[in-house]
Write a protein that binds this DNA or RNA. Structure first.
Lengths: 224, 224
DNA sequence: AATTAACGCTTTGTATACAAAAGGTCAATG
DNA sequence: CATTGACCTTTTGTATACAAAGCGTTAATT
């Protein structure tokens, strides 16, 4: 498998935790490759900011609460803009793709209610599909280029796993609002709805971050 | 010298022209290095979008008129936001840095009037310093991360070389407007002024692009 | 003369070997 | 007992060697 993709996935899915040092030799052994392709993969990840350089080698980047907040601010700006432009430039095919993603999203929520835990992965996917359909509809590939690097933050990617049914449904409703604004070529409404949508996601992630912190503190208290 | 920096500079300054194939062996010989560090540099440039992958190897990316337009749209969005945030979060030191950059900019224009062609390099530098001071003042390092990859497009970097005295002075005046808005913590004015400033830059670059295209057509007409 | 197949050359992808630098350990000394 | 310095180990940085994949050219056949 491609070293870059493998390591990136491993970081996003939390296999390699923040702060963990990534040694070339151990990665090479794990992927059954030589150090050369590993080094190239690491260089790419470094220029994307997913790993941070140490005095020697790199470690998985730790994103602070402030980072998350700032990244969400950026995402709000970029995706809000993307939505407004999508409203102006969308084709019928673009609309079709958004509707498709939303239907699948809705179906996955139904399966989720039946306690199908595997459906979460699909929910994540179809959510991403919807957002990508909008970014694609705005007809500015450079936006996509940057957003793909903004969104890929480990915590954010896993945020859906602590959404409850109500939150998933509310999220779907907002998707529908955004979709109809884009369909009606109402660019300002599309922007505002998308902006609000992402702020809601931000609230979720930040609240969850607080929960984790509390648990951490409790754990440390129990240390003999 | 560091291979990454060297190649990047060479692309920005036009030594390696768009479409030109970058062979590992030839770069290695030019930089008196082995292929290994060259490959790593190329991988980084690839993930930044400055070179595009071929079936074999990479070539210097060609930016179309549409690319330039889209990139400027992005830059408008990001730097406009940065200016508005800078108005809210700037410290006295931030203001000081902006004033400093502007003074130097002004001095360089004076030298430019005296036909000191070397001053253009300084103008480019001090302009960049001013913009960076603002981005730094907005207190969101992630913005900087992305802007540093948006702005670095060969054509854009060289745009100052075809500015005339009037345009340089007008640019300086807008800088002053932006600066005072930020100083007065007028975030909306800061955003609008910055947005307009960058649109003006965009107009310049696009107009120049048309000129170049005309010359190109003329050249091709004279081909036997 | 045109088309295709095969050969060889060029260039990238991967592995490995070697050089250099950083970090840790242990002992000696104040 | 703490601190510093020398040595040793580990890991990265660079070079080179080898494998594989494209690309072009040439020659043979129709």
């Amino acid at each position: 498998m491609d070293a870059y993709k493998y390591i990136k996935e491993a970081i996003i899915h939390g296999k390699y935790e923040p702060g963990m040092r990534l040694g070339e030799e151990s990665l090479a052994k794990e992927l059954k490759l030589s150090r050369t392709p590993i080094r190239e993969a690491i260089k790419q990840l470094e220029s994307e900011g997913l790993v941070t350089p140490l005095k020697r080698g790199v470690s998985v980047r730790h994103f602070t609460r402030e980072d998350i907040q700032q990244i969400y601010d950026l995402r709000t700006l970029l995706e809000g803009y993307a939505a407004s432009q999508a409203a102006l430039h969308r084709t019928d095919e673009d609309i079709q793709k958004m509707k498709e993603a939303n239907s699948r999203y809705e179906e996955a929520i139904e399966r989720y209610k039946e306690a199908d835990l595997n459906s979460i992965k699909e929910i994540v996917n179809f959510n991403q599909q919807f957002h990508e359909a909008i970014i694609s509809a705005c007809k500015n590939p450079h936006i996509y280029f940057h957003l793909s690097k903004v969104v890929v933050v480990p915590l954010v990617f896993r945020s859906f796993y602590w959404y409850d049914e109500f939150e998933l449904k509310r999220s779907l409703e907002v998707h529908k609002t955004i979709l109809s604004a884009i369909q009606n070529q109402d660019s300002e409404r599309a922007r505002v709805a998308m902006t609000e949508h992402i702020y809601q996601g931000s609230d979720q992630v930040l609240a969850h971050l607080e929960e984790i912190k509390k648990i951490h503190v409790l754990k440390e208290d129990t240390h003999d």
